[in-house]
């Protein structure tokens, strides 16, 4: 197994901050906007972005929720056993809001499709945007693209992109994992 670190330490932090500044450009004080992290790994990105935004905009109320998409996936009955759902925690109204969905890695785009469906259960948003930390280019199964991108990566299907977080995993890091061939 070969690990290639794509981003870590200060550069990781600078990327997060750049994403926050780009969000502020479009969402001003966030009075009509909400952040939604997609379970299981997108919630750490959404929490981190919300934390940074609160530092930059101490006066604003930054609303952030977790969305589970398990029941909306398109591979149900196509795996050995059903996936165990995670918690959805959205304690605000989405209706009429600008929603910024966040996931750590954008790959096939299927998760995002499921998330769009899942979000409908909470109302009709005025606008939906997508923010991703890592965009694995040229690997989409459906036409989805992100509005805000941390880094772009060219990878092949057998590789994995793993994002770890300071708060939960000990360090900020994006790693490209390749299985070495025997």
């Amino acid at each position: 197994m070969q690990n290639l670190t794509l981003l870590d330490g200060q550069k990781f932090q600078i990327t997060i901050q750049r994403l926050c500044r780009q969000l502020i450009e479009n969402h001003n004080d966030f009075s009509g906007s909400v952040l939604i992290g997609i379970q299981p790994r997108g919630i750490y990105l959404a929490r981190r972005v919300a934390e940074e935004l609160r530092k930059i905009l101490p006066e604003s109320k930054i609303m952030q929720g977790d969305l589970d998409i398990t029941f909306y996936r398109d591979d149900f009955r196509r795996q050995g056993s059903p996936l165990v759902p995670n918690q959805t925690k959205i304690d605000f109204i989405i209706e009429g809001k600008k929603v910024i969905m966040m996931d750590d890695v954008l790959w096939t785009g299927r998760t995002i499709r499921a998330a769009m469906d899942a979000m409908q259960a909470f109302g009709r948003p005025a606008k939906v945007e997508l923010l991703t930390l890592v965009d694995r280019r040229y690997s989409r199964h459906i036409p989805v693209s992100a509005d805000y991108v941390g880094i772009e990566v060219d990878s092949i299907a057998s590789q994995r992109v793993v994002v770890s977080w300071k708060d939960t995993d000990g360090e900020d890091k994006i790693v490209l994992v390749s299985e070495t061939q025997e």
Partner: peptide, 22 residues
């Protein structure tokens, strides 16, 4: 654990999920 999640689904404005559509 699965029922916990479904209970929260049942308390949403839209109480339906598409899992068993086929």
């Amino acid at each position: 654990e699965t029922a916990d999640t479904f209970k929260s689904v049942l308390n949403r404005p839209i109480k339906k999920v598409p899992s068993l559509r086929d």
